[in-house]
């Protein structure tokens, strides 16, 4: 398969801290690849290495087939970068920022202005084109950041936590933009702390923790592995706890956990909920609480590190997950 991004054994230390402890990545051209992990997991360091901003201590990587160290200049001609640390100039207007980047990319003044206008239009920023960026809202600011990384029509786009701190509507808008880009053949490497975001956008996800990829797979595989959703049942009468555990085990097909007076069980199929309700009804068990919610990153991590504790490599675990 054709890979727009490849990394092998990337190691990067900052003093005593190891930010990357041997990361391998292979991102097929024209796909969205999600790096999912908490703060400090090494996601940003990985992106900075791939975007030629930082040299790895060990290992090597290519983007668009070019080595990120030896052929850094060529890599830079292929990539766009958007992240909290790769920012636009707050004192300039939106139009000036895009003009600046267009000019630096070798466009004529007229072409750079034209390209900037078009992008501002695409991102709904035309009205704010001549305002200083420091007056922009958070969502506008992110859109401009993204527009700035698209001036050069990159083939590979790095999005480092593009929606952190955005309201749901701005976040959805940004997701739509990413989908459009991918439809045009752009390869996207996305880092995020949100399982939902990776689920929405990425074809494949690598879960990163302490500088290592601890699990990798499609969103479905990961959710199956970690219990995509959690069903919680709290019987009104503690005496019913045993019956509820038995029903939950039968309906969900996995062993439930009991915490105080509540029964929680990982479920991979939303249809479990109505089945559960009818079974509880049939058994005439009054329920104080019944909830189905998506797995959070915490739960993914709990689940993944739990598997690691069994001394099994996380990657092979995926194949053993009951479907």
């Amino acid at each position: 398969m054709d890979h727009a991004i490849r990394a092998e054994g990337l190691v990067r230390r900052f003093g005593a801290t190891t930010a990357l402890a041997g990361v391998d990545l292979a991102v097929p051209t024209g796909t969205v690849f999600g790096l999912l992990g908490p703060n400090g997991a090494g996601k940003t360091t990985a992106v900075r290495v791939l975007a030629t901003l930082l040299r790895a201590d060990e290992g090597h990587a290519t983007v668009g087939g070019f080595d990120v160290v030896r052929d850094a200049h060529r890599v830079r001609q292929l990539i766009g970068l958007t992240g909290q640390y790769a920012s636009v100039d707050e004192t300039l207007t939106g139009a000036e920022n895009l003009l600046l980047i267009g000019r630096l990319l070798g466009l004529s003044r007229a072409d750079a202005k034209q390209r900037g206008r078009q992008l501002l239009d695409d991102f709904g920023l035309s009205d704010a084109a001549d305002r200083a960026v420091k007056t922009f809202s958070g969502g506008m600011r992110r859109r401009l950041d993204l527009a700035a990384s698209l001036v050069g029509r990159p083939q590979v786009l790095f999005l480092d936590e593009p929606t952190t701190g955005l309201d749901p509507r701005s976040r959805n808008d940004l997701w739509d933009v990413v989908r459009t880009l991918v439809a045009d053949g752009v390869t996207v490497l996305l880092t995020t702390q949100y399982l939902e975001e990776a689920d929405q956008l990425a074809g494949e996800i690598a879960v990163v923790d302490h500088g290592r990829v601890i699990a990798q797979g499609t969103p479905e595989e990961l959710k199956a592995k970690t219990g995509g959703q959690t069903l919680t049942v709290r019987p009104a009468d503690v005496a019913d706890l045993g019956t509820v555990v038995a029903i939950a085990a039968e309906v969900a097909g996995v062993t439930p956990e009991v915490a105080q007076t509540a029964v929680t069980v990982a479920v991979n199929d939303a249809r479990v909920l109505p089945v559960m309700v009818s079974r509880l009804d049939a058994a005439e068990i009054p329920v104080a609480e019944l909830a189905l919610r998506g797995a959070s990153l915490d739960e993914v991590f709990l689940s993944l590190t739990g598997h690691r504790a069994e001394d099994a490599p996380a990657d092979t675990d995926l194949e053993r997950t009951p479907a």
Binding site: R48, A51, T52, L53, H73, R74, R76, Q77, I79, L81, G83, Q84, Y85, A86, S87, V88, D89, E90, I101, L104, L105, A148, G152
Partner: peptide, 13 residues
Amino acid sequence: TKGVFDRLRALPI
């Protein structure tokens, strides 16, 4: 500190 420098360094300049 604002990240403008990294934006510039990621460009082919």
